[in-house]
Design a protein around this nucleic acid. Structure first.
Lengths: 341, 341
DNA sequence: CTGAAAGCGCTTACAG
DNA sequence: CTGAAAGCGCTTACAG
């Protein structure tokens, strides 16, 4: 059923149907009611292609994801979709992992569909692709890049509140020697996050010991490798922060394999609070990054540009907070350490 | 840059540009080369809206997901997207969890965008929505419903091979008493899956004991509740199959809380092999359901309809296979049980 | 082998 | 307050 059919049935022009459909006040109430009746009876569904072609607005937002199987992302996607559905927006999903051309292909496809905005959920979006988007006046929202521009907003993660809570909590438990397993060495986000760790460490009056700070890769394997190096030190840390939950989970398992009781012999703190953080044994103490808030920020960021796609974007920030579970506990004074004095 | 501009630059009509762009052989090679040069130089990106409006083909596939945060789905979505990208198809994602109108809104939105097909990744798609899709000649592929029709294919999961392997494996380990924690009682898939369990049980010559078969809900909580009932029996099972990994993980944690050593005192077998199955402690023995194969089947199912959206669909089947990890081990003869004789 | 023309289903100035 | 008309950027018979 096309708008033309509705118009014929209601005895008006398509112009009027279109106005009624979009709730324009420029229509006589009686006429509007008649049209609405026909619209409902026929269960009219508009043609998004025609509407988009004519108006230049598709109400589609593109979502560029690094790797949807990383449990951090589905929760954001879900919330984002939920908000989008409420506002009659669509989501076009592109996963860029394993695509040889990086973001290039994704963006090309998104441009084909004239999306109204793109949420880029990767820490390393490539410059060329972003330029293509800018050239076509398509607004973007990025993750933790902290760079703004025309049609470009950013959603940053502020780990400091959670880190500071975590340090105070560890201090209470008697910990003094705090380690850190970071993200991939090359990435800006890794550097920033490590900075936050050091800042919180100092704030609590803990010593900054460079041998306690290792790089990871945001994955299970990196966490496992790094904690092995830390636990093998002569005077190892008694508690360890990590750059994300995957790293913490890797560290947790590796420590267990080495014979440590996590939460007793060694305390481990994650970051993100993915759903599986409470499924590990012991359940993971972590810094929660609210996924609903992230999703809301991304949506707001894109929505903000509305009809002015080239206005300067805004910086949004989402804070973390400490969630205490069982992978942390009182600092343990090792018996063999005492006896060796 | 529109096609009109390309035509002007190349000194031909838009008809010719269109033909060249789509690789039609009806164009003189010299002309084609000239057009291709302009196409490349200008980095022409077609307008999907205009193309779709005119041709009736969008190359967009809709994906209807129950809950993207259930780790079973992202892996399918990822593979599906990867195949789609290769074939220049788009994915429009709709998550139906928490949407009051169930699939209704999702389908309405998908109809607005004239998607070429819809993959429905939920065990309970509502009839009305499917009828709407059928009425609009939009092909569908469903998950484990085992019903075909015009424009309707199905991807079934065959758990028997994995179940049978699992039974033989348990038999070797000396187990005789095998329990099962199923899915949500109402759903057809739960009934089917339980049937497969019983079939495999008999095939291995194990006794079918109704008190060993409990319902779950495909979630952590259901698995936890059910295993508590099983372990409290006078003569409890020594090994337990589950309807999915989430159920198994819930069971694993609950058993541990009750003081059981999983893999020693009690063996637990999951189903799916989600990524986190190897992250539990102990790592989960499970029946793997290949997600790449599932995704491929869904894509093929939709692709199959091509230009005949109303032809009768096909039944696809994906088999499971046993993956042995640490949540299973030799059957234990309980000391107190022996002494109580 | 190539182009002029119609038309997909809408929206939106414009005229009345 | 309402409608006729143009046009968004393509594709596709049709004619030559």
């Amino acid at each position: 059923m096309r708008m033309t059919d509705i118009a014929r049935l209601a005895g008006v022009s398509t112009s009027t149907v279109s106005r009624v459909f979009h709730g324009s006040p420029l229509v006589n109430e009686e006429t509007a009611q008649r049209v609405r009746a026909v619209l409902n009876d026929s269960r009219y569904i508009p043609d998004g292609l025609a509407r988009g072609l004519k108006s230049g607005i598709t109400n589609i937002y593109g979502l560029v994801i690094t790797d949807i199987t990383n449990p951090f992302f589905p929760e954001i996607v879900k919330e984002f979709e939920s908000i989008a559905a409420e506002r009659s927006r669509e989501i076009m999903l592109t996963n860029i992992d394993f695509h040889k051309n990086g973001m290039g292909d994704s963006v090309r496809r998104l441009l084909t569909w004239k999306v109204d905005g793109v949420a880029i959920l990767t820490s390393n979006p490539d410059r060329r692709s972003m330029d293509d988007l800018t050239a076509n006046s398509i607004p973007m929202a990025t993750l933790d890049r902290r760079l703004l521009g025309p049609g470009l907003s950013d959603i940053a993660v502020d780990n400091l509140p959670g880190m500071i809570q975590g340090m105070a909590y560890l201090d209470n438990l008697g910990h003094k020697k705090i380690g850190y397993i970071g993200g991939l060495p090359g990435e800006a986000i890794s550097k920033h996050r490590r900075g936050e760790f050091i800042h919180a460490l100092k704030k609590q009056g803990f010593a900054v010991r460079s041998e306690y700070i290792k790089a990871g890769d945001f994955r299970i394997s990196g966490g496992a490798a790094a904690i092995q190096e830390l636990l093998v030190l002569n005077d190892p840390p008694t508690a360890i922060f990590t750059a994300n939950d995957m790293t913490a989970i890797g560290a947790l398992h590796a420590a267990q394999k080495m014979g440590y009781k996590v939460g007793e012999d060694i305390s481990i703190i994650g970051l993100d609070d993915i759903a599986f953080a409470e499924m590990t044994t012991p359940a993971l103490t972590t810094l929660r990054l609210s996924r609903p808030r992230m999703a809301r920020a991304f949506f707001d960021a894109l929505d903000y540009f509305g009809s002015r796609p080239s206005s300067i974007g805004q910086q949004y920030t989402v804070k973390t907070s400490l969630v205490i579970r069982d992978s942390t506990g009182p600092a343990k004074v090792k018996k063999n350490q005492r006896s060796s004095r």
